[in-house]
Amino acid sequence: MKITLKVWRQKDANSKGAFKTYEHSHVSQDMSFLEMLDVLNNELVQKGEEPIAFDHDCREGICGMCSLYINGRPHGPLQTTTCQLHMRSFKDGETITIEPWRAKAFPVVKDLVVDRGAFDRIQRAGGYVSVNTGGVPDANEIAIPKKIADEAFDAATCIGCGACVAACKNASAMLFVSAKVSQFALLPQGQPERKERVEKMVAQMDEEGFGACTNTKACEAECPKGISVANIARMNREYFSAITSSYEVMAKGGGD
C-alpha cells in the first residue's frame, strides 16, 4: 500500500504548528496504525529528519495513552483505540490527515502529543472512595445486585483517553467525568461521599476549561469503550440533587 500522510508537526507547546506531508510507500494491510507510524519514523531517522512524536504505550487498547485525530475522527474510522486500528481500514493511495486532540484543556506538548493532566486533576477532586488501607469489612459483607454492579462496571471501563473531548464540538469532558461519578453513585461504597464527589468533580471540570454538553452524543459514538451518555444524564441528576440538598460545608474542605 501507498498512502499520503498529512501530519501536524509542532516543536513544543509555545511554537506554532503546521501540517507536513509525507509520502509513505512501505505500508502493509496487517500493520497497526501506530506500526505504520513506527515504520515512517524509522525511515525519517535514517534520513536524518526528526521523527513524529506521538503518545502510545500498551498497544492493546486499554492504557488510554494513544490518541490521534485521524481523518476527522478520534482514534480513526473504527470505534476503537488507535493502537487497535489496522491499515486494512484504509484504501491504497488514500490521504490520511493526523491531528492532535484539540482542546484548550489539552494543550499540545509536541507534534501529536497533548497534555491530559486535566483528567487527573478532575479525578483527584473526588474520583475515589475515601478508605485507608486495612480496616475494611470482608468483601462479601457488601452485597451488590448484579445488574447494579454490571452498570457500574460499564461506567468504570473508561480508559481516560480523551476521545470524548476530542470528538465533542464543545470539547466537553462530561462523558469522562460522568463515568466516574456514575460508577460511585451506583455502588454502595460510593454513597457516603456521593454528593460532595459530584460537586467537586464538576467544579474541577469547569475550572479546567472544558466546554458544556450539547447532547450531540458524538462522545458516545467515538468512545472506544462505548460508554453511554446515560451516564451524563445521571451526572446531571446527581449534580442537581447534590447542589440543592447537600450541606454548604464544602468550602471548609470537608472531603477528607
Binding site: R102, K104, S172, G209
Partner: peptide
C-alpha cells in the same frame, strides 16, 4: 474550550 488551533478535518459521522 476548543482552543485556538481548530481541527482541519472533521467528519461529522458521529
Amino acid at each position: 474550550a476548543r482552543g485556538t488551533d481548530r481541527y482541519a478535518v472533521t467528519s461529522g459521522k458521529s
